[in-house]
């Protein structure tokens, strides 16, 4: 069973990413990895919620957070999830150019999000809210920063996959990679929704 699944590369399935056993393994393994990531972020959220009022006479979340900026960032990231879906549907129709276009838009939106986030952090630091200023500061940057690091990694990853797809085309080797990178991107997005509500919205009501 294992051996013929490998050789069977021109499987007529619509889902190129799970056409081979390797592809199936990769997708399953990635879902498992995401489960671990859920726990990781859950722990960071727990830490943040436990420490968020420990501002040590520094600025509080109420004074700091600017919802307008965050809403723009949220819109950018949510849209990038949508474009990533478009990219995957283009991939399964074997439309390389279209897929590359949508992946490019995704990466671009991710970059824009990242720039806003960096701007936000720099702004906070000027206001005296730093990683070292209080337990609140540490917990805030640990959580939001870990998310930001994930976005950064995602941008680098997807860009490198775009190069691979350009060189080798869409096949049973590249498709699973592209697919799991899009899973990853959605995951980052979901985490952001929680950050938006539990950090920013909750931070505004005290």
């Amino acid at each position: 069973m294992a051996s013929d699944a490998h050789t069977n590369t021109n499987h007529a399935s619509n889902h190129l990413e799970t056409a081979t056993l390797e592809g199936k393994n990769k997708v399953l393994g990635f879902w498992l990895f995401l489960a671990a990531e859920v726990v990781l972020f859950a722990c960071l959220f727990g830490t943040y919620l436990a420490l968020k009022s420990q501002t040590m006479s520094g600025p509080t979340s109420m004074e700091l957070f600017d919802l307008n900026l965050v809403i723009v960032a949220t819109a950018l990231l949510l849209t990038s999830s949508l474009t990533s879906v478009f990219a995957m549907s283009a991939m399964n129709q074997r439309k390389l150019k279209l897929m590359q276009f949508w992946l490019g838009v995704t990466v671009f939106l991710g970059l824009a999000f990242l720039i806003l986030e960096i701007y936000e952090f720099v702004h906070y630091i000027h206001l005296g809210h730093t990683f070292m200023s209080s337990a609140f500061g540490s917990a805030f940057y640990a959580l939001v920063g870990t998310h930001g690091a994930h976005v950064t990694f995602g941008i680098i990853w997807i860009s490198s996959l775009m190069i691979q797809a350009q060189k080798r085309g869409i096949n049973t080797d590249t498709a699973p990679k592209l697919f799991v990178s899009s899973l990853y991107w959605h995951f980052i997005d979901v985490v952001w929704v929680f950050i938006f509500s539990l950090v920013y919205l909750l931070g505004k009501v005290g």
Binding site: T47, L51, Q54, T55, M56, M132, S134, A135, F136, G137, S138, A139, A142
Partner: peptide, 8 residues
Amino acid sequence: NFFDYTMG
């Protein structure tokens, strides 16, 4: 300062 109680 996650664990340093003097800093919260």
